[in-house]
Amino acid sequence: MEKSVRKYWPVFLLPTLIAFTIGFLWPFIWGIYLSFCKFNTVNKVKFVGISNYTRVFSDSTFVHAFWFTALFTLASTVLINVIAFLIAVLLTRGIKGTNIFRTIFFMPNLIGGIVLGYIWQILLDGLLSNWGLPLLALNEKAGFTGLLILMGWQQIGYMMIIYIAGLQNVSPDLIEAAEIDGATPWQILTKIKIPMVMPSVTICTFLTLTNSFKLFDQNLSLTGGEPAKKSQMLALNIYDTFYARSGGQWKGIGQAKAVVFFLLVVVIALIQLRATRTKEVQA
């Protein structure tokens, strides 16, 4: 069978391969090459070696964006996963209205990042002005907290769904056996439920980590990086370097930043997967 399928590769493989080359492979390789070049349009490209990379690390906005992103990613990953898991545990007790609650918690997930940002901008600016505090555009701390709330609002429902699926897969026999042995609800939670849902924890931390680290739309619409690029995250900083700064050298530096950003994402993903995978158990 393999042989006869193989002959049909132009039908099965080729369309995706061509699109994949146009949409990903070629831009990726070209992007790596351009990160070593000075260019303004793609017709005037001059090879400059690693000088773009040295400029990246001496750019204070990038360093600030890095720390802002790192802190945000850490805070949002912890916040989202703890709350989502808590809700999932409470919603698997069979309380009245579980389905409605689940529906509502998941809903914000379907609204796009740009729209979400503006919804929260209106709400948070309203709160800030009623409390007599500076608005989002002038308030770095509020920008950070606002992004955190927005991200939580959007992602908690999604992660909750995954945790609920994980919890429902824990065999009732196991819990019953523990109850007969006299385990308290707290012991059942920490000694059985949490170890048994570790695969879900792996997935959810992976998703929240990468989503938060790569956040762009919400950042653009909620704060736009204001005040003075102080609430810029890495993705927005790269975009800003490419399209908002004038001067011939910035596009090359932007591309170099993008390569650094890509490497950071890969490193984080690998570390995280290794760290949580080792904690998974078999029933």
Binding site: L13, L17, F20, I22, G23, F24, L25, W26, P27, F28, W30, G31, L34, V42, T210, K214, F216, L234, A235, I238, Y239, F242, K251, G254, Q255, A258, V259, F261, F262, V265, V266, A269
Partner: peptide, 25 residues
């Protein structure tokens, strides 16, 4: 190779290819 390239592409952030992708398009 195709399979592993696909998995790889899921990790790559869009900012990495945005400029060159727009030019290619």
């Amino acid at each position: 190779a195709m399979y592993y390239l696909c998995i790889f592409s899921m990790v790559v952030p869009f900012q990495m290819v945005m400029f060159t992708l727009a030019k290619t398009a």
